[in-house]
Simulated assay, not measured.
Amino acid sequence: MSKLDALPHGPEFRFVDELVSLEPGKQALGRYLVKGDEAFLVGHFPGNPLMPGVILIEAIAQLGGVVAQSDPEIAALKNLLLTGVRGAKILGAAVPGELLEIEATVEGRLGGMIQVSGRVSTAGRELATAKIMLSGEE
C-alpha cells in the first residue's frame, strides 16, 4: 500500500498522482498530471480548460495530509480535514498536459491541528502558494 492510499478521497478527487519524496512528518514533494479529462475542466472554461485555483490549494492540502499522517512519532489523526486557508495566492493557471509539482511542509502541530505551508509549480513557474490548517481527532 502506498502512502497516497491513505488519502480518504476517491480517485475522482485526488490531486496527487505520485509521491516523489517524503520526509515523514516533515515535508514531501508530489506530482499531478493535468490529464484533460477531469470533470471540472468541462466548465472551467469551455474551449480554454484551466485547473481551478482552489484545486491547486486542495492538492497542497492532500499532500500535507500525507506528510502529517506519516509522522512515525505521532499517531495518525482520525477524520483529518482541511479546515483553514491563509495567505493563499493563485499566481497562474495549469492546463491539460502540464505536470504539477506540489510541495508541502508541516510547520507546526498542536493536538489535532496541523499547520502546513505549500506551493504548486509547473516547469519552474509558480502557480499557487498557501498556508493551510488541517484538523482531525486524536
Rank of each mutant, 00 (worst) to 15 (best):
M1T: 13
M1R: 10
S2V: 09
L4I: 14
D5L: 10
A6K: 14
A6T: 15
A6C: 10
A6V: 14
L7Q: 12
L7E: 13
P8W: 08
H9V: 14
P11R: 14
P11M: 12
E12W: 06
E12K: 13
F13D: 12
R14A: 06
F15S: 05
F15V: 08
V16C: 11
E18L: 06
L19K: 09
S21V: 03
E23R: 12
P24Q: 10
P24H: 06
G25P: 01
Q27W: 01
L29W: 00
G30H: 04
G30Q: 04
R31S: 09
Y32S: 00
L33F: 11
L33S: 11
V34K: 07
G36A: 10
D37T: 11
E38P: 00
A39C: 08
A39R: 13
A39M: 05
A39I: 12
F40Y: 14
F40I: 15
L41E: 13
L41P: 04
V42Q: 15
V42S: 10
G43F: 09
F45D: 09
F45C: 02
P46R: 05
N48T: 09
N48C: 11
P49D: 04
P49W: 02
P49Q: 01
M51P: 02
M51H: 05
M51E: 03
P52H: 10
G53S: 05
G53N: 09
V54L: 10
V54A: 13
I55V: 15
I55C: 07
I57S: 06
I57M: 12
E58R: 03
E58W: 00
E58I: 05
A59Q: 02
A59E: 01
I60N: 04
A61L: 04
L63K: 04
L63T: 02
G64F: 11
Q69I: 08
Q69M: 14
D71N: 09
P72L: 06
I74L: 14
A75E: 14
A76V: 03
L77V: 10
N79S: 11
N79W: 11
L82K: 03
L82F: 08
T83I: 09
T83C: 12
G84A: 03
V85L: 05
G87C: 02
A88E: 08
L91S: 10
A93N: 08
A93Y: 13
A93L: 06
V95K: 14
V95E: 09
P96Y: 02
G97L: 13
E98Y: 00
E98D: 07
L99Y: 00
L99C: 06
E101N: 13
I102R: 00
E103I: 01
A104T: 12
A104G: 04
T105D: 07
V106C: 08
E107W: 00
E107H: 03
G108R: 11
G108P: 00
R109C: 10
G111R: 13
G111P: 01
M113S: 15
M113R: 15
I114D: 04
V116R: 06
G118C: 08
R119E: 13
R119C: 01
R119D: 01
V120D: 03
V120T: 06
S121P: 01
S121Y: 02
T122H: 08
E126D: 12
L127P: 03
A128W: 01
A128R: 03
T129K: 15
A130V: 07
A130Q: 07
A130E: 13
A130Y: 05
K131T: 15
I132A: 07
M133V: 15
E137H: 04
E138C: 06
E138I: 07
